[in-house]
Design a protein around this nucleic acid. Structure first.
Lengths: 137, 137
DNA sequence: CTAATTCCTAGTAAATCGATAGAATTAATA
DNA sequence: TATTAATTCTATCGATTTACTAGGAATTAG
């Protein structure tokens, strides 16, 4: 399941993607437009900025705008940024790999094999969902 | 991600599936065999019993045994029993549906459409992973 | 200088998670 | 029938995470 943070991030990105190019959106504008608690959204936008999905202009008349093409922002990336691993267990994860402490020998962990299969399919599906693909609906 | 409960449940089911037919496994035996905290495993086995995956015999020489074919126990079912929805948001879930409080009109929620697509693919993949398919490795 | 905005750091209440404790219940068998 | 070994049930605990909120510092346009 997605955290609220991840959901709000996606909604905020969708909002930004729907604006005219060169338009700068204030936090409050996004919060109202996408129904997101404003102070919470502030943090989320900062995270998106650190992740180089958006950039900002400070001070009066400042705000946020996309710096990554909406075709290149995938659900998989947003999931990873806010909720971490896409795999069902860390031992089956590409980006957040950690061995299981309770598995005696990993090569023999039959569960892991199955979970890596799931991971590959889920990942592929999530990489196919882009902000652009969602906006055009 | 799977909770420890779900992971332990899968490991316990794998353990049971590997035993001879008609063999009854005590909790402590499963706990040792699959490296699961015994008291925690107790709860998990009760959950699996309520879910009609296993049954138990009480008293001396009691224990647990599979009552569902290993071909019919899927990762999807275990995920649902212990961790709930497979979809990324409740509004995109089949079995745990709930509307989003922050979406103005659901039909217009472009995010939901994408998440239902992911759900279908993930679900299909998870239904393909059975205890039997994991044991034979 | 002032107003409007992002940026930063804490804090907090509630829920969830992983696990433990202990007593009640059940059943085999000596 | 008493003993013993097992499941079953209920309650609780501490740590972590989640979803926010609060307050103010820094920045910028006019």
């Amino acid at each position: 399941m997605l955290s609220h943070k991840a959901k709000y991030a996606l909604k905020a990105l969708l909002y930004l993607a729907e604006q005219d190019e060169n338009h700068i959106s204030r936090t409050i504008e996004i919060a109202d437009g996408a129904n997101i608690p404003k102070k919470f959204l502030e943090q989320i936008l900062l995270d998106l900025k650190r992740g180089r999905f958006v950039s900002s202009k400070q001070g009066k008349f400042g705000g946020y705008y996309l710096i990554k093409s909406k075709n290149d922002i995938t659900l998989a990336e947003i999931h990873r940024l806010f909720d971490g691993a896409i795999a069902l267990l860390p031992c089956a994860s590409l980006n957040f790999y950690e061995p299981c402490s309770d598995c005696k020998t990993e090569s023999e962990c039959s569960l892991r094999q199955g979970l890596m299969l799931i991971r590959d399919k889920t990942l592929k599906a999530m990489e196919g969902i882009t902000i652009a693909s969602l906006v055009n609906k």
